[in-house]
């Protein structure tokens, strides 16, 4: 057995930068900085960026001369639709607030941190949002070892990418949710068309995953192997990327 520590999970590192980790988790990350100087430098850079943001966008004091919001009986001018007066929307918000209250009570009583809230969502929706946001991966992972480690850590099984044919290239990995909080997505370009392959444990599979609007041009393909479920989402007629994702480490 070696004393070598496992590399950071990217989302743990981001949570560290976001100060949302528990004290014990923070200590663990800080200890790991000894092994990962580049991460330590990244954290220092983030602190510098945060400080510069606070300086460039200071919190402003409200003006002394407040407007007088004396109202008339005229109806509210619509800005963006009546979503906040929709009873269903308000009901959902009230239910969500009640759930948060229950979770916080549980947390207070047991001393345990509640599990982060997660809701499965259609993968076609995530695909559409990712494309709209520029189709940029969260992590441009081109290191075979790291690639395998990420799947081993998140899905419990290492995976590797077999050589892809001309016209198909892997851009990197993202962690956009979908089936579970640990769903890993591989972003690819196939014949200049964006393709996402979502991978998770088969146990996390959800009927919501493959939901696509009837008039959508997005196609969702599913396969299952070795306890994992994979979905390929694209506007292509056939799956073109998931076949290159194999269980195990690269030889």
């Amino acid at each position: 057995m070696s004393n070598e520590r496992k590399p950071f999970r990217d989302d743990d590192f981001e949570a560290f930068l976001d100060s949302t980790l528990s004290e014990a988790e923070r200590e663990k990350i800080l200890a790991q900085f000894e092994d990962e100087g580049s991460r330590r430098d990244e954290a220092q850079l983030q602190r510098k960026i945060d400080a510069a943001l606070r300086k460039s966008f200071p919190i402003v004091a409200p003006p002394d001369n407040l407007p007088s919001f004396t109202e008339t009986d005229e109806p509210v001018a619509e800005i963006d639709g009546p979503i906040h007066r929709n009873p269903l929307f308000l009901g959902i918000l009230a239910a969500a607030a009640a759930l948060v209250g229950i979770a916080l009570t549980f947390w207070t009583l047991t001393g345990n941190k509640p599990a982060p809230y997660f809701k499965p969502m259609p993968l076609a929706q995530i695909y559409r949002e990712t494309v709209q946001n520029g189709f940029v991966p969260y992590y441009e992972c081109h290191d075979n070892q790291r690639f395998a480690d990420i799947f081993a850590d998140r899905q419990g099984i290492a995976m590797h990418l077999s050589p892809m044919p001309e016209g198909t290239r892997m851009l990197g990995l993202s962690y956009p949710g979908g089936l579970s909080r640990d769903t890993t997505a591989m972003l690819c370009m196939v014949d200049e068309s964006p393709v996402m392959v979502f991978v998770d444990r088969a146990a996390a599979d959800s009927e919501l995953a493959a939901q696509v609007a009837s008039d959508s041009e997005i196609n969702v393909f599913r396969s299952e192997r070795d306890g994992l479920v994979m979905y390929e989402v694209s506007e292509l007629e056939t799956p073109r990327a998931m076949e290159f994702l194999d269980v195990g480490r690269a030889q």
């Binding site: 003006p63 109202e71 008339t72 005229e74 001018a77 800005i79 963006d80 979503i83 007066r85």
Partner: peptide, 30 residues
């Protein structure tokens, strides 16, 4: 302040603080 002045000029009527804030944030963005 422009968004606040629009809120005034439109003769807005809000039924709760939440509806006022939602309107204001939306107006500020626009």
């Amino acid at each position: 302040q422009l968004a606040a002045s629009i809120a005034l000029s439109k003769n807005t009527q809000f039924e709760s603080e939440a509806s006022f804030l939602a309107w204001m944030y939306s107006a500020v963005r626009k």
